[in-house]
Design a binder for these strands. Structure first.
Length: 199
DNA sequence: CATCGGATGGACT
DNA sequence: GTCCATCCGATGG
């Protein structure tokens, strides 16, 4: 019997990136490996809207092996390495619109024993998934997931909690101080009062 | 080729 | 607060 939550339809990703960044809040992100399923509710996101966003890897339509997937269909995984870590994004925007939503925080749901094992250095549960590199590690997301369609096993997004508008807050994005005007754009979104916000 | 700088996290002072 | 692991892409010679 398959009890895994059903993926959201691909059409879900066909909405503006700022709106998608908010729509993703509360949704369930799942990854299945040989060790089992681990999942969590998305609680913090950031929108990156190339080519006009200095903070986006796709700024100025910069097209490389790394950013290539952003130029394709929305609803695929954009993973990249930041120093020693893998970060996970949801590709948005139509073909040739290189936009994405970075997932910065999740609230652990299924497979919490597995997540704890994957985060041996975390002293507290809160540190398992309150940051983009942390949650990728906890879920077992790696560069092997680059380009994976998010409506399919083994990495997918399913319907989670329905939020009210007043539960969503926004503010400037994290870690992009050298991005000129773009550093102040309020393109970071999070669920009010949630414990698994990165900061 | 060399060098530099990150959409980070963890260890340490 | 500081330092650094370790990789990819940008830039300059």
């Amino acid at each position: 019997m398959d009890i895994s939550p059903k993926p959201l339809d691909k059409s879900f990703y066909n909405q503006g990136t700022l709106q998608l960044a908010q729509s993703l809040l509360g949704q369930l992100l799942l990854k299945e490996t040989d060790d089992g399923i681990a999942s969590g509710f998305i609680v913090e996101t950031e929108a990156y809207i190339g080519p006009d966003d200095r903070a986006a890897h796709s700024f100025n339509n910069r097209r490389t092996k790394r950013t290539e997937v952003m130029f394709g269909e929305p609803g695929n995984a954009y993973t990249y390495t930041m120093h020693t870590h893998c970060l996970f994004n949801v590709v948005s925007g139509n073909v040739n619109r290189p936009e994405a939503v970075l997932i910065r925080g999740i609230e652990p749901h299924q497979g919490q024993d597995l997540m704890g094992k994957r985060r041996p250095k975390a002293k507290k549960k809160i540190q398992w998934t309150n940051g983009p590199g942390k949650l990728a590690k906890a879920l077992g997301i790696t560069m092997d997931d680059y380009g994976h369609p998010l409506d399919k096993h083994p990495l997918w997004i399913a319907q989670g909690k329905i939020l009210k508008d007043d539960e969503i807050l926004s503010g400037p994005r994290i870690g992009i101080d050298n991005s000129g005007e773009a550093k102040d754009y309020p393109w970071r979104f999070w669920i009010k009062g949630n414990n698994f916000i990165s900061r």
